[in-house]
């Protein structure tokens, strides 16, 4: 039985190392060379929405990592039984269930965070990165590899949104993880000195600018060009 996105089944090798070179690439590729946000330009919507402050961004990043790892694992385990004609619905059902799970847990144990993130956690369902990886990888690969792939892609997403959030919170609110850095710096120079925050950074426009700069720097370094 195969799926529509038929993959060449790998030749059975005697026990591949837990973190072989190939598997390390699964993890490291999405960090820079094949980053879901900066190269594939997926998941932009949430990268704009949640990144005004580091703390909610951090929770968002953890949630996406959880959802991606377990969605990849589940789909990979079921890959030989999922009927190809309804696979998209099956993927959606699995993602939606995991996201609901995250939402419920947040509501129970981190209510303040739940209030702040509210709709954005729900919107992980529509995050193209998650479904993209299920469709492109988990459906045709073994569970362990799929978990690594999911983890790698989620990390690639996480570090970008954290980087964006760092600059947006620093320049927009003058703080890092809620610590008022600007106030403390201006305190060093006496009462008359103060650092102004930039209101542009707290609006989505700020995220676009930061994201654009990150992509620019990254592509200059890696020499990546779009075809």
């Amino acid at each position: 039985m195969s799926t529509e996105t038929a993959q060449v089944t790998e030749v059975k090798k005697p026990a591949e190392a837990l973190l072989s070179k190939r598997r390390k690439k699964l993890l490291s590729d999405p960090l820079v060379d094949d980053n879901p946000i900066t190269i594939q330009v997926l998941g932009i919507c949430s990268a704009l929405a949640v990144t005004t402050q580091l703390q909610p961004t951090f929770v968002m990043a953890l949630s996406v990592i959880f959802v991606m790892v377990f969605a990849n694992l589940t789909i990979s385990l079921l890959r030989n039984t999922i009927p190809s004609r309804v696979r998209i619905i099956v993927q959606l059902a699995v993602i939606a269930s995991l996201v609901t799970l995250v939402n419920e847990v947040l509501k129970a144990f981190a209510y303040d965070m739940y209030k702040e993130l509210s709709v954005f956690v729900g919107l992980i369902i529509t995050n193209c990165i998650v479904m993209g990886r299920l469709e492109a990888y988990a459906l045709g690969n073994k569970p362990y590899d799929s978990v690594l792939d999911g983890f790698g892609s989620a990390l690639g997403y996480a570090w970008i949104i954290l980087a964006v959030a760092f600059f947006r919170e620093l320049w927009g609110s003058g703080s890092v993880f809620g610590v008022p850095v600007f106030d403390q710096i201006s305190g060093l120079f006496g009462d008359d000195f103060s650092l102004a925050t930039n209101g542009l950074m707290v609006s989505p426009v700020g995220a676009f600018i930061i994201l654009g700069l990150i992509i620019w720097v990254q592509r200059t370094k890696t020499g990546y060009v779009e075809h």
Partner: peptide, 21 residues
Amino acid sequence: LLLSGTSQVLGPIQKKAVELD
């Protein structure tokens, strides 16, 4: 089942979180 089970287990904790808030 998974989802309704979760909400059964977490329901009381969530209620308390809302009340605390």
